[in-house]
Structure formats: C-alpha cells, structure tokens
Design a protein around this nucleic acid. Structure first.
Length: 316
DNA sequence: CCATCTCAGCTTTTACCCAA
DNA sequence: TTGGGTAAAAGCTGAGATGG
C-alpha cells in the first residue's frame, strides 16, 4: 500500500498526472454549524490541531499520531468528513485506490479558529484553500515529510523511553531560520538519555546534486548565525545517496560544515498496515553520516546527555 | 455515542482465455 | 476477428457486531 500517502507504484501501475484530484468537501450552512460541530471529542480537536498546523495528512498518518487503531481512525475520519469537519481529496491511479488526504473542512476550520482565538474563516475561503491544496504539486512532497514525522511519532508511542518531542512544519521552522534556509521540518527525537534535534530534508530526486550541496552551504551560514543542528536527508535511492556523499566530500574534503546523515528510501522495509509496527525502520541503522561508511540508528546520531526526554508530540 | 475489529465489496485497466 | 468473462494488482470503504 502507500506508506501513509507515499505512493508506491508497482510495475503495473500508472499515475494519471493530468487527472484532477477528486476533492470531497461537504458544504457548511450557517444553520447547521452548531449541529455539525456538536459532539466533537478531545481527540477530534487534536486531529484538527494537527491538520491546522501540518495542512494535510492521510488516515494512516492520523492513526499513528492520534488514534490507537487504523480501522477506528478511518471510521472516525469518515464521520468527521461527513459532517464537514474535514475535507478530503485523492488522485486516481491504476491499479488500486489511493488513501484519502484529509485536511480541515469548513466546519473544522471554523471550530479550530474559534478554539484558538483566530479570526473565523468563511466557508468559501476554506473551500478555496482545500482546492489549492488538492491541486498543488507540493502537496505530495508535504505528505512525504509528514509521513516521516507521523511514523516517528507512531513508533515512539509504542516504545517506552522514546518520544518525538517537537515537530515543526516547514513554514514555522523557515521563519525561525530567518529565511536563510527553509528545511522541510524540524524535529526533536528522544531515546532514553539521548535527544536529537534535527532539520529534515525530504529529497525526491527532482533537484540537482549541486542544489543539494548549495543547501548544505546555507545550513553552514545558519550555523555561523548560531543555529547548528544535524541535517537528516531522506534520499530516494542508494545511488542518489552515494552521489550526494561524493558531492559533499568534494566540496568539503575534510569535514562537512554541519553534521549530515542520509537515509535512502529504497532501503526501508516494505510498508505495512499495522500501527504498532509502523515502519520502525526509520529509527534503525539506516542513517549514514557524511564521511562514514557505517550506518547508525537515529538515536546514535544524538549526543548522549543527562536530559530527561521531552514530552510526547504535541499538536498544539 | 464512542472504540475496536472483521470482512465483503469496490476501484480501474490490462492481459488472457474461450466461444461465436 | 470480435466480444464477453475473469483474474490480477494494492489498498480503501463502509456495514455490522460487540463492548464500554
């Protein structure tokens, strides 16, 4: 299946890039706003909070982040969609079907705005936002980034002593970095006495290696400005990883200006349905620091500290 | 009303087999 | 040659049952 939104395509599959995504939005009338927003649980609010902050998530990703079971997540998300709390869309590919991508619907956007003290959006504005999201070429990239963090959060919830303490989306971390770099995300992962704060870069292979190396140079500028964190590069293949390592080593023969580790996506275990076993492989020894041949676990990339792990992922 | 689980059915196109 | 039926792929949907 798709790993929480990452389209895995068999040799028989074909994506229809020109087919518009199927968008499913329940309109919200003023009269039934109160009716439809009634009965929302604390967990529903958590779902809204995640979607407000990270824009779009699949049912599997939300299951990992918020729900205990995938089937219940799908069931509840369908109810929320039916009420107009959530909107959803997906592309048609062959063969098979695609997971729905969920985002805030008209009711959900209003309820979340009311809960956070923000200005209430008009339903037409929400509809426009959903349509833009559904048609944006950047949405699949965003889903890939969200999938990494959702998998990490889901994994942490099933392993004592591990936690994803922070997960900042692209726009928030970009603002914090004063525009010098725009990482795809920032996270803090704890494993017992070790905490790794890292920038995350999700590479789909569409950028040139020179562009990636230039990015590293920008991170060096950021480090000079006082923000130095390791960069985790998610690369599409082992060969891409090999060439990236070679390019960085050519540019900085002794040592890269900031710590960098890479993981080739084609080394990941085949994705599965189960929440508990949700791709633990991203925390396994798949991460290769620049200048090393031995791969390390995610926790091994972190310096040992005596700090207590931070709280689990907070959607707020 | 919510949580959890199971399971039959659906989606969509191609390849293949068989009968007319 | 043409047309109909079926399997395959990969995963989602939604109904139903059970229990809190």
């Amino acid at each position: 299946m798709s790993e929480g939104g990452i389209v895995r395509v068999s040799r028989h599959s074909s994506i229809h890039p020109h087919t518009p995504p199927r968008v499913d939005i329940r309109p919200a009338g003023k009269a039934d706003l109160l009716t439809r927003s009634r009965g929302l649980t604390a967990r529903d609010a958590e779902v809204l909070s995640y979607l407000a902050r990270h824009r779009v998530l699949t049912a599997l990703q939300l299951a990992r982040l918020v729900f205990g079971s995938y089937s219940h997540a799908r069931s509840r998300l369908a109810v929320l969609h039916e009420r107009g709390v959530l909107a959803r869309f997906r592309r048609d590919i062959w063969p098979g079907s695609q997971p729905w991508r969920y985002t805030l619907g008209p009711i959900g956007a209003i309820v979340h705005a009311a809960a956070t003290g923000a200005a209430l959006p008009r339903p037409a504005t929400v509809t426009e936002t959903v349509l833009r999201l559904a048609h944006s070429a950047h949405t699949e990239h965003r889903l890939g980034v969200n999938d990494f963090f959702a998998t990490l959060a889901g994994h942490s919830q099933h392993h004592d002593g591990r936690a994803l303490g922070e997960w900042w989306p692209e726009n928030e971390v970009g603002a914090t970095c004063a525009g010098i770099v725009r990482p795809d995300g920032y996270g803090e992962y704890s494993d017992h006495d070790r905490t790794l704060g890292f920038f995350y870069e999700y590479d789909t292979g569409t950028e040139t290696l020179d562009t990636l190396v230039e990015k590293v140079g920008k991170y060096a500028e950021l480090a000079d400005a006082g923000i130095c964190k390791p960069i985790l590069f998610h690369l599409p293949s082992a060969s891409r990883e090999h060439h990236f390592h070679a390019a960085v080593t050519r540019r900085w023969p002794v040592k890269p200006p900031v710590p960098i580790a890479t993981m080739p996506a084609d080394q990941l275990a085949p994705p599965g349905h189960h929440i508990a076993a949700a791709s633990p492989s991203i925390v396994d020894a798949l991460w290769r620091p620049i200048g090393h041949t031995r791969r390390r676990t995610l926790a091994d990339l972190a310096p040992r500290t005596t700090r207590q792990p931070t709280a689990r992922t907070d959607a707020a």
